[in-house]
Design a protein around this nucleic acid. Sequence first.
DNA 1: CTCCGGTTTGACAGCGCTGTCATACGGGAG
DNA 2: CTCCCGTATGACAGCGCTGTCAAACCGGAG
Lengths: 334, 334
Amino acid sequence: MRVRLEDVARAAGVSPKTVSRVLNDEANVRESTRERVRAVVAELNYRPHLSARSLASNHSYTVATLYDNPSSSYLTEVQDGVLEACDQRHYSMLVRPLDTEAPDFVERVDTLISAHRPDGLVLTPPVSDHPGLLQRLHERNVIYASVSPKQRADTIGVYMDEQEAAREIVTHLIQLGHRRIAHAIGHTVHGAGTWRLAGYRQALTDAGIPVEPALVVQGDFSFDSGVQAARQLLALERPPTAIFAGNDDMASGVLWAANEHGLSIPNDLSVCGFDDVPISRQVWPTLTTVHQPARDMGRIACQQLLDVLRGQGPGRMVQVPYALKLRASTAPPR
Amino acid sequence: MRVRLEDVARAAGVSPKTVSRVLNDEANVRESTRERVRAVVAELNYRPHLSARSLASNHSYTVATLYDNPSSSYLTEVQDGVLEACDQRHYSMLVRPLDTEAPDFVERVDTLISAHRPDGLVLTPPVSDHPGLLQRLHERNVIYASVSPKQRADTIGVYMDEQEAAREIVTHLIQLGHRRIAHAIGHTVHGAGTWRLAGYRQALTDAGIPVEPALVVQGDFSFDSGVQAARQLLALERPPTAIFAGNDDMASGVLWAANEHGLSIPNDLSVCGFDDVPISRQVWPTLTTVHQPARDMGRIACQQLLDVLRGQGPGRMVQVPYALKLRASTAPPR
DNA sequence: CTCCGGTTTGACAGCGCTGTCATACGGGAG
DNA sequence: CTCCCGTATGACAGCGCTGTCAAACCGGAG
């Protein structure tokens, strides 16, 4: 039979409650007692039963990460970051892919919460922006941290100044000499889509270049939408000399379509992306992009959440820095 | 306060135990009672408390997926498949990234099992091949299903005939007219690395082509190792006319290195991969590869596991079919 | 009408832990 | 030496559910 807390208590000559105190790092245990208990725990290789603990304490020591994201590499990194933070504090992580468009979306999350009782949630976009969900979470007093939410007020989590980053990378294109710069937009329901578009517009405006509607085409952050967008742009009578894609997946799609058109990158067309996920280094030529520290962001969001859960402060909305990665897909126009 | 089973029982005018029976689809409940209880459950929006259930029943209704894999897209697909199977049967999934090389690897898994008490595990390569782990699992009587394990005997799960698939794709290269065909091997601690190499050798041998040691270079399934391997191969005095890479990530690396050398694919060099993960369609030119139904494999492995857990049969080692995807990266040699 | 066996239902304990509260301890002040 | 108060420890109940086993019920055979 497995070792229970009671067994540890007996072996250490203390009461179960004292063992519990030691395990949970509670105050008011004599140091010598603490050490003795710890030794027995190690000797017997005791591991607490999480369900029992959860039932008794009304904490699950679990964080659930919710997502509905097309980019698996971005997501994996965020997830890894969340896991890292969880591990540090002996929390465990539950993952839940969701369809934010589904009619029963909120109810599904509700069920998850009722069943598993996670102590808190980490929301990644676009889950972090679903008004219906956020409202329900507030109603139920569920604590959550958001990664890159549209609305940062009264929310804890992590974000990056995406608009400024987008402005900078487009400015880089302008400095190279480009004037006809297109933008393949990502999902505008994501904050990311909106901010990156705003940064693009701002860069052009700052440089006195008019924003030409034909050069702004809709996509959805997927590779395929990048291909479509590029096809559309390259078919224009006066095609752009540079394309700023909403993210690296789309930028890779742009590269692909450019190949299809027999264009040489970056000589015939400059391309840049956003995120700096692995594919940006795996396509030819490597993509100029903005580095988004996704893993750090996952970790930080989860840390903020855990701080609040453990009563260690109110939790903050932390800003992380971006970094331009100038690689091989951008050059002066011919 | 949240709705408890007792509340449902009171509202339905039955005992808690009867509600429990209905919720768990147990026999010996009159149909009319069952319906009444179900109606109340729906009306009160009752959700069982998983920790309580788990504590009382000694089942956690949780499956843990263990991995240590460099390819995030492969993994995400497998994970999605596992989740799909879990959802169907109202199980939940816990994920756990691991480092199979770490000295405390087995102990970490041990802790996970003791703490969360998953009813079963889904192991993905290379976790599925770690002898120390498997032994511990047997000792502890932990039930698991493996995805593509090296040893299929006495194990449930799912596999694909990778050797035969590799043989077929290399044969495809031979039929195109290639004679100097190289292979960039994946990790040979993975079954995948071994099988694909074996298939490569067999295809050459079957065609009466000698296996040239210089044309077989070691990699580790990563993009970078594909780049390295290709650089090495292309620097040979008599470079190959075709390279079969251990997986799509490596094949993408080969393409990248070929670009670096100014080679035109597939005219100067044919390249093929294995797995059919998204990147194989996102590079230029699109990769000829072998489709591995990763999502299905995750689902099937988990289904086998759940069958065993629920006493519905002994569980099997299921073979899934592969499919050659002939795309744009292969052509006759010049 | 009684008896019998299977079916349906319920009473009750207990899963392994923690919260609450009472008690014991121990050292300094008076 | 006694009293007091903060610190350390333990007794006990109970978290929400299910396993076990006993009881009630029901329909058909005798």
